[in-house]
Structure formats: structure tokens, C-alpha cells
Amino acid sequence: MITRRHWLTAAAAIAASFLTGHAVAADPPAGEVLEVTVPTRALGAIVAAEGGAAVVVRIDGKLGPADIRVGGAVHSVAASQRDLLDDPRNAPRVGAGVRKILVAVRPDLAATFEANHKAWTLTFVRKVLAWNARLAKTTVRGKRIVNTHDRAALLAWAGAIVDAKGQPSPPALARAPRDATAATLESYVAYVEALVRSLE
């Protein structure tokens, strides 16, 4: 998990890099499109944001929670925490891991993958800062909360202390979605928005 200081430092670096003129490639790149298999649509959304037109995302729930399969090889993009992307501050770091793997497979597209990463994270950082402000006002902040619904990353992001002897998790968490509805960045944003609302 990244700290607020690391997050703000990374956000500033991303913004500075973006202002140098990098942009997402609009046209499909030359060569074969990469098939990337992921365990969840939330992780698929990050892969799609990083790869753009160079990738097609497939879902295989049998993969580890932070694993992706590219060209028959399985790679880990982060620590194996099932609910890792319930805290969207982790998304840029996961994306950087995805980008590294994609570049290793398609080094000819390294500049495209780098530009994609900078473009989507610049906008995403603003959303995370807005979610942070909303979560700062939740009733779980600073309280010991039982991880009743397996949402440890979300609770920690909201400022709760996950503790088996704490108060029960908010009942709305039982109704919160378990994954994005599609492997797109827009769907992942909607997923995180629903998680934030479940704590308000």
C-alpha cells in the first residue's frame, strides 16, 4: 500500500510528464494484438488502460488475484491481495507493473504503453483525490472495524483500523459490488464510486 506522501509525489510526477506532450495512441498499433488474461474485470480495466488498442482482455477467475497471463506465461503485477484494487490508490502502481510486462513482450510498443500510462493516471489521480476527500468524512474513519465482508483494502483506505475485535463492518458493504462490470477504466471508476458510496 502506498502512503499519502508517495501518492502525491507520484501524482506530481505524472502531471509533469503529461505536460511534456505524451498522449494515448488513437490507432491500433502495427503487429499482433496481445491477449491478456486476468482474474477480475477490475484488473482487466487497468490492463486495458495500459495496453490500449494493443491488447484484448480475457477473464479467467482461476488466476491468482494479482496475476496476468500474456503469451502463455503468468506474471504477478502486485502482492497477491484479492481486494487490492478496492483501494484505487494502488491502481497506478499495478498499472506500472502491467506496463513493464507488456513492454517485455512488445518492446516495440514501449513508448505507446508509457504514453497510455501517463494519460490515464493523470485523470485518475484527480478522481482518487476527490474520493479521498469524501472518505475523510465517513463514520468508519479512525474506528476499529471487523473485516466482515472481506473488504480490508477498502476499509483501510477509508481510514478504518481492521480489527477482528472491532465494530461490525457497515451493512452497505454487503451490497457493494465484488467486481467491475466490464474490463474498462470507466467501469472500474464506477465500481470504486459504488464502494465509496457504501461507506458514506
Rank of each mutant, 00 (worst) to 15 (best):
R106G: 01
G51A: 10
K100Q: 08
V103A: 11
R99Y: 03
L63R: 04
A73L: 14
A96H: 05
I46Y: 01
R41K: 15
D87K: 00
R106L: 09
A23I: 05
R106K: 15
P92F: 04
R82M: 12
I101G: 00
A48T: 12
V103I: 15
P107L: 13
D83Q: 07
V47W: 09
G95E: 01
D27V: 13
E32N: 11
A49Q: 02
G72A: 12
E32T: 14
H22R: 15
A30I: 11
L102Q: 05
L84N: 01
A42V: 08
A45H: 06
D27N: 14
V24Q: 15
A96Q: 10
G72E: 10
V105W: 06
A96W: 04
V77S: 00
L102H: 08
D87V: 02
G52P: 03
H75N: 07
P65K: 00
V74K: 05
A25F: 04
G72H: 07
L34G: 03
R89K: 13
P65I: 02
R82V: 10
S17A: 14
N90G: 06
D27G: 06
V36H: 05
L34V: 14
P107V: 12
R89M: 13
I46M: 02
I68L: 06
A26Y: 00
A66K: 00
V74Y: 04
P92W: 04
R58K: 15
T37M: 08
A53M: 07
D86L: 03
G31F: 09
P92Q: 06
R89P: 03
S76Y: 07
I59L: 13
Q81R: 13
V47Q: 10
A23K: 14
V77K: 01
A25D: 15
D83S: 11
V36S: 03
L43R: 01
A66H: 00
V24S: 15
I59V: 15
V24L: 13
A42K: 04
V33Y: 02
E50A: 11
L84T: 01
P28V: 13
D83V: 08
G95D: 01
D87I: 02
A73T: 15
R89T: 13
G71V: 11
L19E: 15
A96K: 03
A16E: 14
A49C: 06
L84V: 03
V98D: 02
G31D: 13
A26K: 13
R93Y: 14
A26E: 15
